Structure formats: structure tokens, C-alpha cells
Amino acid sequence: MTTSPESTGSRTRLDRERVVHGAIEVIAAHGVDGLTMRRVGQELGVEAMALYRYVSGRDELLEAVVDALLGGITTKVEAQGFDSWQGYLQALAHEVRGVALTHPAAFPLAATRHPEAPWLRPPLRSIAVVEHFLATLTGAGFDDTAAVDAYKLFTTFLIGSLLLEVAAHGSDIAGVGQAGKGGAPATLSGELEDAPHVRRTQQRLSKDTSKQEFEVGLEALIDRIERSF
């Protein structure tokens, strides 16, 4: 009887988590454009076809990489503890920055892969994370409008500054956007049922306020420069 290559040793014993970890290693070595199923297979010591038991292809694998990088962010913030909404934003920003600096080659995927809904923003791109963000700020006294505006400004700041930072460390952020094919899932009813803050503010989340965000961010930057001058 022929032995499956997946069972010939601990190095080749596969599961989805190991496949995703292998993809992260390949991206670190070859960049996003260099990620192929063949290379992941080589990284794990198996034939590329063996990977298709765990992911349907490269596109799903890229999405799984982003989920792995950003998964558990809010749990880590909660574990740190915070005593104010300012402390929460600082802890969350540092956690995301830690992901960017630990995985600079893969982090641009967080900016370019489709979020769970088209009106969510990277890198806080999942309904669960946005729900946690909105619940924390409204719990601290923000109304819905102020909480959504804070989410938009915060994500704009994060993605802009962190993409610049990883680019400065040599990561190629050009063309990564081509990695995301297809759109967001057609239905989000299941996820939204467990996210009352997101569901309640969905209309405002989907409103384009990018010009206002740019002006507010610019004013804040100028104010800070003036204070330190």
C-alpha cells in the first residue's frame, strides 16, 4: 500500500493552520507576488496538490493569511487591559503595528484584500473587530456618529502610516492590490446578527467622508507640529 506523503513524517503532517503558516513563510521570503501553491508545498515538504484539501486555491490562501495575521487582535488588547478609550486606541494601534513590523511583506495584504463588507476599512476589516471598536467607544460615552467617525479616522491613520513604514523597510506595496479578486460576500446577515453596533451604524459606515477625514487628519497633524515647535 502506498503511503500518503502527508503521513510520512511530522514535517509533512498537514492541517489548514500549517498550510497558512507555510504561506506566510513563503511571502516573507518571496513576497506576495512570489506566493504559489508549489512554493508552499515545497516549504511544507509536500506536493502542491496536497494543499487543496485545506484551501481551494491561492486566493483563499491569501485571505486566510490576512485572517491569521489580524486574528485575535481584540483579544490581545483586552488581555493588556486599558482604562480609557485613549488607552484602547493606543493598545489597538500598537497591536496592529506589531503585526505590520513582524510580517512586513504580508501586511500590505491587509490593506488590499476585500473586507467582510465594502463599507469596512482595512486594517480593521472584520465585522467582529469593528463591533469591538464601536462597542468600546460607545461604552466610553461616544454617540454613534462620533464612534464611526473615530473608526474612519483611526483606520485611515493606521493604514497610511503602517504601509509607509513597511515600505521604508523594503516591502513591496506596489501591485499587491491585484491579489484581491472578487467582492465581499453577498450576504452578511449571520455576522451582522452578532454585531448590533455595526448593524445600527451601517449606513454611516458606508458613507464616503474621505475628504473630511483628510482635512481633519491634516488639521490634527498641524496642531501637533505647532505644539512641538
Results as ranks from 00 to 15, higher is better:
residue 93 A to Y: 14
residue 72 G to F: 11
residue 114 H to E: 13
residue 115 P to T: 05
residue 112 T to S: 03
residue 69 L to G: 12
residue 68 A to H: 14
residue 84 S to G: 09
residue 106 A to T: 08
residue 97 R to V: 10
residue 80 Q to L: 14
residue 66 V to N: 03
residue 119 W to D: 10
residue 99 V to A: 07
residue 83 D to Y: 05
residue 66 V to E: 06
residue 110 A to R: 05
residue 67 D to Q: 03
residue 120 L to E: 06
residue 75 T to C: 11
residue 120 L to K: 11
residue 112 T to D: 14
residue 79 A to Y: 03
residue 109 L to M: 11
residue 96 V to E: 09
residue 98 G to P: 02
residue 115 P to A: 07
residue 117 A to Q: 11
residue 111 A to C: 07
residue 124 L to M: 14
residue 123 P to C: 12
residue 118 P to L: 07
residue 121 R to L: 13
residue 96 V to I: 15
residue 85 W to Y: 02
residue 67 D to A: 05
residue 128 A to T: 10
residue 83 D to C: 01
residue 123 P to F: 07
residue 112 T to E: 14
residue 107 F to H: 12
residue 113 R to I: 12
residue 67 D to I: 00
residue 79 A to V: 02
residue 72 G to K: 02
residue 120 L to C: 05
residue 81 G to K: 02
residue 120 L to F: 11
residue 109 L to T: 03
residue 78 E to I: 07
residue 127 I to N: 13
residue 74 T to V: 10
residue 68 A to S: 15
residue 122 P to W: 07
residue 121 R to G: 06
residue 89 L to D: 01
residue 94 H to S: 13
residue 95 E to M: 01
residue 94 H to E: 15
residue 82 F to W: 15
residue 109 L to D: 11
residue 69 L to T: 03
residue 126 S to F: 00
residue 87 G to E: 00
residue 99 V to E: 10
residue 101 L to F: 15
residue 109 L to I: 07
residue 113 R to C: 09
residue 108 P to Y: 08
residue 96 V to A: 05
residue 90 Q to F: 09
residue 88 Y to S: 09
residue 112 T to H: 13
residue 119 W to P: 08
residue 116 E to L: 02
residue 104 P to S: 13
residue 89 L to E: 07
residue 104 P to K: 11
residue 113 R to S: 10
residue 95 E to P: 00
residue 68 A to P: 04
residue 95 E to Y: 04
residue 70 L to C: 12
residue 88 Y to W: 09
residue 95 E to S: 01
residue 129 V to Q: 14
residue 67 D to N: 06
residue 114 H to K: 12
residue 111 A to H: 06
residue 128 A to H: 10
residue 123 P to A: 05
residue 80 Q to V: 05
residue 115 P to C: 03
residue 115 P to W: 09
residue 77 V to I: 10
residue 73 I to Q: 00
residue 118 P to R: 12
residue 89 L to W: 00
residue 124 L to A: 03
residue 117 A to G: 02
residue 103 H to D: 09
